[in-house]
Design a protein around this nucleic acid. Structure first.
Lengths: 214, 214
DNA sequence: GGATTTATGGAGCGATGACACCAAAAAAAA
DNA sequence: TTTTTTTTGGTGTCATCGCTCCATAAATCC
């Protein structure tokens, strides 16, 4: 255990161990799994599907990711990090609250219909119906959806505080409305709706924005 | 093979055959299957789950309904007939177009949160993500959703013709908006949202109704 | 180079999936 | 009662599921 390591002990996140190095990149494999889960859902994606798309063997899979369910957890995190950034970006953006939601809904129309990704949203439409054995996965997804709505509500509350919205605004109800609309748009996208059609839905959704006079 | 049939060949729909009568009612068993599919989805529901809930054996199942997929088709029809009537009733109701959609959205909030039924909608949230092997089921569901949106659009077009909506109204886009919102509400219901919360979402959705002045 | 450490491919496990078959049972018709 | 028709329970089949084990290959450290 003399500190004469070859290069550095752990230069960043890259592990420089002693044994044989892996012949795949963890992040790349994870993204492949994410796309597959996104496209097919949790139990629509089999072990063999996963190892095939990730380009690794069953044993590599198991001692790198632990289990299918653990991988799904990581895939969700990867989704939020890699493909779901637009959601949080729109909420964090400068400018008025209405402009933020306008941008959010417009971004959803674009992101749900990218031809380099599966249609719709990985989380919005996942595990809404499932067998008793997958109740943990369902609760995980339901929790993520609740958190998304909570993020919307937080932004709306800030809008009320900033004077962008009437004092009488029910931020939780309005957040639930926009959250519902986003999820419905995700289903439409999955069923093949065009970007323009989603953009229209988003535009109509903004007509429900609380009036100053309300 | 003498043509001396017993009495009447098929008096109505009630089959009075010669052999042993079934010890279960077809409709009752079908409804039990519908509820199970509604709660757990197509592949979240196993053969054994079904036969158990329906109270019949595997062979009775097979020669009464043909296959799991054929039963699912029948369950969808049963859903539309038994539990989905409110949708078409609201669209067919007397009065203005806006009142019809108001009633529709209010009914959705009620129907999605009945304690004598699974939460949400059997069709809205089903098979949005699935394996390649279940593409037929997915297309069936997507088709039903498309038909629902088409029904909304037809009613809206009538509204335009009746003068209830501005000539400039894009009926297809507006139908897609309300269709999306309904599906999002179904997801919320599945995640445990209360009837009052859904009622609020529906109310906000009606704020997007086209202005006469638009 | 030799020892050590780690990843890899492949075979195989028990469980469950949907479905199929068959002899026995039950009820109407003759 | 006998015949005919149909349902029924039980058992079996074949595929797939997620997962595990083990001998081997490939790197690093001494």
């Amino acid at each position: 255990m003399t500190p004469k390591k070859s290069g550095g002990p752990k230069p960043g996140g890259e592990r420089r161990g002693r044994g044989r190095p892996a012949c795949f990149e963890r992040e790349t494999a994870l993204c492949a799994a994410m796309r597959l889960f996104w496209e097919r859902g949790y139990d629509g994606t089999s072990f063999d599907d996963l190892t095939g798309a990730m380009g690794i063997s069953a044993s590599s899979f198991y001692n790198t990711f632990g289990s299918k369910e653990a991988l799904y957890h990581e895939a969700i995190e990867a989704y939020l990090r890699v493909a779901g950034g637009w959601f949080f970006d729109a909420l964090a953006r400068e400018g008025g609250t209405r402009a933020a939601f306008d941008a959010l809904m417009a971004a959803a129309a674009v992101e749900f219909t990218r031809d380099d990704q599966p249609a719709g949203c990985m989380i919005s439409t996942a595990a809404t119906q499932c067998s008793p054995g997958q109740v943990r996965v369902r609760d995980l997804l339901a929790g993520q959806r609740t958190r998304a709505d909570a993020a919307l509500a937080t932004r709306l509350e800030r809008g009320v505080a900033d004077g962008d919205l009437p004092e009488s605004t029910d931020a939780n109800a309005l957040a639930a409305f926009y959250g519902s609309l986003l999820r419905g748009m995700a289903v439409q996208a999955r069923d093949g709706a065009s970007r323009e059609r989603l953009r229209e839905i988003a535009r109509i959704g903004m007509l429900a924005w609380p009036d100053e006079g309300a």
